[in-house]
Simulated assay, not measured.
Amino acid sequence: MKDLLPPAVRGFDDLDLSWLRARQSVKWHRPTRDVLPAWVADMDFPTPPPVADALHEAIDRYDLGYPDWPDGSPLRAAFARRMVERYAWAASADRVREQTDLIQCLQLVLHLATAEGDAVAVQVPNYPPFLATLRTMNRRAVPVPMRDTEDGWRMDIAALDAAVAANHCKVLLLVNPHNPTGHVLTLDELTDIAATAKRHDLMVISDEIHAELVYSPHRHVPFASLSDDAARRTVTLTSATKAFNLAAIRCAITHWGPDRLLARRDEQPPDLYGTVSPLGVVATLAAWRHGDAWQKDLLTVLDRNRRHVHHVLRTRLPQVRHHLPEATYLAWLDTQSLALEEPPVDRVLSKGRLLLDGGTPFGPQSSTFLRLNFATSHQVLEEVLARLIDALRTTDR
């Protein structure tokens, strides 16, 4: 399969395993040395040079004092500018607030906009911390299963409308691009969802953190950009952390569409929910202002890797059902036809010494699925695929 790969990309394919294993972040630090990790949604690639340079410059200036942001951080205007440039969405900088990460953003919105027992419609499968948030906050999750079609994963609009009506949902938690299936909601799908939201007066919490990791010809459309009505009912959550591999900077953005909800948020004590680190702002601004060339190379590598995973599994392990992801760096693999006698996550760990995510934490009907992170060098990816195939080909009989 190696002859199908294009030439190596400097800075992305020259990763040393000992360097990766020396990392203290959870992806590489938690597994034992005989286990190869391709699980949590961190990329293996080095920090984008413009971001590293900006952080070094801040440290070299000893610029770690209190920031002078009387009217909010410079991220607000930078976010609004990027939305116009990327998606022609005239997001208002005045409606942007900073938080430490996307999960905190979600929890804050739910805390302010809903009460215990309120019903929240949510796509399944879904990002496990989102589903766990609904459980721990005692919000009633109303699952809306994504449809696995011959053309890929799709949103089931009829099921959404029926579920919202039957359960009197107050909120739709929308993940687009979708984690874990990699589906990018089409304009038609989004338009239908917006009609459902208007018909049932739903607030929409739109997680768009993977928006900049979309592969051509697919195109991301911010939900709030669809119409004035959509803008007024949508809270958009995003961050530079996924598209630039910066999870540890702890910096995320919330764009608050509903007037009353933004007012309620601003009535809260200013530091009750924490404040974003100046270094997180430095890193995000550097990524947005100077990281596009790096991101272009990144997307070239990820596009190559997703196609390679798709080809290898189709040719060497065709029993595993999957679709070419339209976005993200995650492949969602169904092992149901293999009739394994143990959960697939346990199987690939025990038989292949390979750590993947998957299974029931992603929601109902996910027990036979694996989520594979392919954001790594082609050498590491070859070893990941070899271990996966060996583990799933091994029979119990």
Rank of each mutant, 00 (worst) to 15 (best):
D68L: 06
W69R: 02
P70L: 08
S73D: 09
P74R: 06
P74T: 08
L75F: 00
R76D: 12
R76H: 11
R76W: 05
F79M: 13
F79D: 11
A80K: 05
A80Y: 04
A80C: 04
R81Y: 02
R81E: 15
R81M: 03
R82M: 14
R82T: 12
R82V: 12
M83N: 06
V84E: 14
V84I: 10
E85S: 11
E85A: 14
E85F: 00
Y87T: 07
Y87D: 09
A88I: 02
W89P: 00
A90E: 15
A90S: 12
A90L: 09
A91V: 13
S92A: 15
S92R: 12
S92K: 05
D94I: 00
D94N: 09
D94A: 14
R95V: 10
R95D: 15
V96M: 09
V96R: 01
R97P: 01
E98Q: 11
Q99D: 12
Q99A: 14
T100L: 11
D101N: 15
D101H: 13
L102D: 14
L102W: 00
I103F: 04
Q104N: 03
Q104S: 12
C105Q: 13
C105P: 04
C105K: 00
L106Q: 02
Q107S: 10
Q107I: 04
L108Y: 00
L108N: 11
L108W: 06
L108S: 10
L110A: 11
L110G: 10
H111T: 15
H111K: 10
A113K: 04
T114E: 13
T114P: 01
A115G: 12
E116C: 08
G117D: 05
G117K: 08
G117L: 03
G117R: 08
D118Q: 07
D118I: 10
D118S: 06
D118R: 07
D118C: 04
A119T: 11
V120T: 01
A121P: 05
A121M: 06
A121K: 02
V122N: 01
V122M: 07
Q123D: 13
V124Y: 05
V124M: 05
P125N: 02
P125C: 01
P125E: 09
N126G: 06
N126V: 00
N126F: 02
Y127E: 09
Y127I: 11
Y127Q: 04
P128K: 08
P128F: 08
P128R: 08
P129I: 12
P129G: 06
F130V: 03
L131I: 09
L131T: 10
L131K: 03
A132S: 12
T133D: 09
T133W: 02
L134G: 03
L134P: 03
R135N: 13
R135Y: 11
T136M: 03
T136H: 06
T136I: 08
N138C: 07
R139K: 07
R140P: 02
R140L: 07
